[in-house]
Amino acid sequence: MKMIPPQPFTYEAGKRAVLLLHGFTGNTADVRKLGRYLHAKGYTCHAPLYTGHGGAAEELLQLSPENWWRDAEEGYRLLTAKGYREIAVAGVSLGGVFALRLGAEYPVKGIVSMCAPIQGKSAEELFERILGYAKQYKTFEGKTPDIVQAEVEAIASLPRDQLSGLQDLISNTAIQLDDIEAPVAVMQGGLDQPLYLNSANVIYEKVSNPHKSYKVYPNSGHILTLGPEQQQVFSDVEHFLNQLDWENE
């Protein structure tokens, strides 16, 4: 089957810009609908695609999490290079972690953290995520179940040391939460795993800015932007953005 790889996207509109960040093993499709929604409301939106994402799972194991962090940084720099001076950041899962880290290290107008694992999973759990992604991707390629199984088993024997680096990146971001000065909206799927629900509480409690909010979407799982309550999520993201202290009205 001919695979059409996902791509970064930029929807330009007004002077207010939003950087949209997808999750680990995800791609820009995770945030494209949100980007289109916000674009229709007058926001410029850009979403980078992390290196190795949207392709074969084997590529992910050859990369460092710092590669993906640099991709998030480059997304921010792309918007500034285009002349945008007011940038908010919204991310899903690992994208939420990156959004928080950007807020600690760069000037941002506001941060939307959706299902961010600030209390990270173990390297083994992250590796299981890669194996699940590999099975899905190879099946979508049209490979037979036997070939899919054989190739997934081959991946299971590959080194996974760099996934510990992802744990470190998440842990270091948790330490930086006190440095965030921008308003923060924490959004969490009620049907998500307990780790993510606990992480959402930690993020909300540790962010020092009093302009913060926390909302649980009871019928949603991990990827809020693709779940059954996505329209409410989109509306809430827009409401949060509209309440920020933008200089360009």
Rank of each mutant, 00 (worst) to 15 (best):
A134V: 04
L158R: 13
V148P: 12
D146E: 15
V186K: 08
R129V: 13
L169C: 05
S113A: 15
G190F: 12
M114S: 11
V186T: 12
K109Q: 11
Y133N: 00
N172K: 15
S113G: 03
P117I: 05
N172G: 05
A174C: 08
Y137T: 05
Q176T: 03
E105Y: 01
M114G: 11
A104G: 10
N198K: 06
G120A: 15
S199R: 00
I180M: 04
T173A: 08
F127K: 11
E128S: 10
K143H: 09
A116E: 05
A174F: 09
P117V: 06
I175W: 10
F127Q: 08
S113D: 02
A150K: 14
G120M: 10
N198V: 02
M187P: 15
Q188Y: 12
Q162G: 02
I118M: 08
V186P: 00
A174N: 06
K143P: 00
A182E: 02
G142S: 04
A185N: 05
S164D: 06
K109S: 06
Q176K: 13
P145W: 02
A174E: 12
E125K: 13
K138L: 15
M114W: 04
L126A: 11
L126R: 07
T173D: 12
I180Y: 11
I111D: 03
A154W: 13
Q149C: 03
S164I: 03
I155S: 06
Y133W: 01
P183L: 01
L197S: 09
L197Q: 14
V152K: 03
L131A: 07
T139P: 08
M187A: 14
E125V: 12
A134W: 03
S122V: 04
Q188M: 15
S164Y: 07
Q162P: 01
N198M: 05
L163N: 09
N172L: 14
V148K: 07
I147C: 01
E128W: 10
V184Q: 02
I111Y: 02
E105L: 11
D161Q: 12
I118F: 02
Q136Y: 03
G132W: 03
I170T: 03
Q193A: 11
A116H: 03
K138V: 00
I130C: 04
I175Q: 13
S157Y: 01
Q162V: 05
